[in-house]
Design a protein around this nucleic acid. Structure first.
Length: 269
DNA sequence: ACCACCTCCTGATCGC
DNA sequence: TGCGATCAGGAGGTGG
């Protein structure tokens, strides 16, 4: 579900609401949400939330000595509620803070994961350490060197978080449209100029999406009552049978590596 | 080592 | 209307 803009939106809302609050209790209702590599989640009790950061699609809850890594995958959400309000279906972890506040991890499909680590382990964490730089920080020449080594399609490459960090299916589709690159084009055939276009398109699109609090097309809400607004800027994603804004041919939908891919055959060569 | 495929889940929608 | 099939903002694990 959430990609970089949605994750940043969620993190910013949670930070405003929860900063400097102390965890007093935690209830785990569906233990599989917790990674098997995680320290005991109960170590967080009595710790104060110092900061919330993001890295790509990960949310990092900084509790000083510990960091809670959270990945929302397809459907994960955080809701802030009064601690005594009833527990709804699909609320799997309840973090109770002082001031009567609770943070509820809600995940219909149960794909999301949380993992508690010691702060000093952040750099060698096997998931975080593998992540590439976000588009804002990435160097086009270095990205190009990685891309031309790949035999798979550029669409698949853009979804690889170890190559470029933060794009998911929506923004990968939009970036390739904006860059005028055919999603089937193989990594080895991509030019340096095309990589430069990918980076600048990604930065432009992600920044506008962040300003619009992400994209709501299915089930995404940043938290209770907060939805994204970037869907009104989408050019190709979910637009099959609609017209390409540039050339007015039909946008088509195909599958690439099992993921829905929308593009304009005329504009994206 | 790389890459395509399967898997983890639930619920909404599609198609016969 | 009924009901199985398919699909959905993701990525870890597996096996060729």
């Amino acid at each position: 579900m959430p990609e970089l803009p949605e994750v940043r939106t969620v993190a910013s809302i949670l930070k405003n609401e929860l900063i400097n609050k102390k965890i007093t209790d935690i209830k785990v209702l569906y233990p599989k949400i917790i990674s098997k590599d995680s320290l005991s989640i109960n170590l967080l009790i009595n710790n104060k939330l110092k900061d919330i950061k993001t890295n790509g699609k990960y949310i990092l809850f900084d509790y000083g000595k510990y960091i809670l890594l959270s990945h929302l995958r397809m459907e994960g959400k955080y809701f802030i509620k009064d601690k005594d309000s009833s527990i709804e279906k699909h609320e799997h972890i309840i973090f109770i803070f002082d001031d009567n506040i609770s943070l509820r991890y809600h995940d219909t499909r149960k794909f999301g994961k949380v993992e508690l680590i010691k702060k000093e382990e952040l750099g060698n964490n096997k998931r975080i350490s593998k992540l590439a730089l976000e588009p804002f920080d990435i160097d086009a020449n270095e990205l190009y060197q990685k891309i031309i080594k790949k035999k798979t399609s550029i669409k698949t490459i853009l979804l690889d978080q170890t190559i470029i960090n933060g794009l998911g299916n929506i923004y990968a589709n939009e970036v390739l449209y904006d860059s005028e690159i055919n999603p089937f084009k193989l990594g080895k055939d991509i030019t340096l100029n095309e990589v430069k276009k990918i980076v600048s398109s990604a930065i432009k699109i992600l920044n506008l999406a962040i300003l619009n609090r992400g994209t709501t097309i299915r089930t995404y809400t940043a938290t209770i009552g907060v939805t994204g607004n970037y869907q009104k800027y989408l050019k190709v994603h979910m637009k099959d049978k609609e017209k390409c804004p540039k050339c007015h041919n039909n946008i088509i939908k195909v599958k690439i590596n099992g993921r829905s891919t929308y593009y304009c055959k005329v504009c994206q060569k």
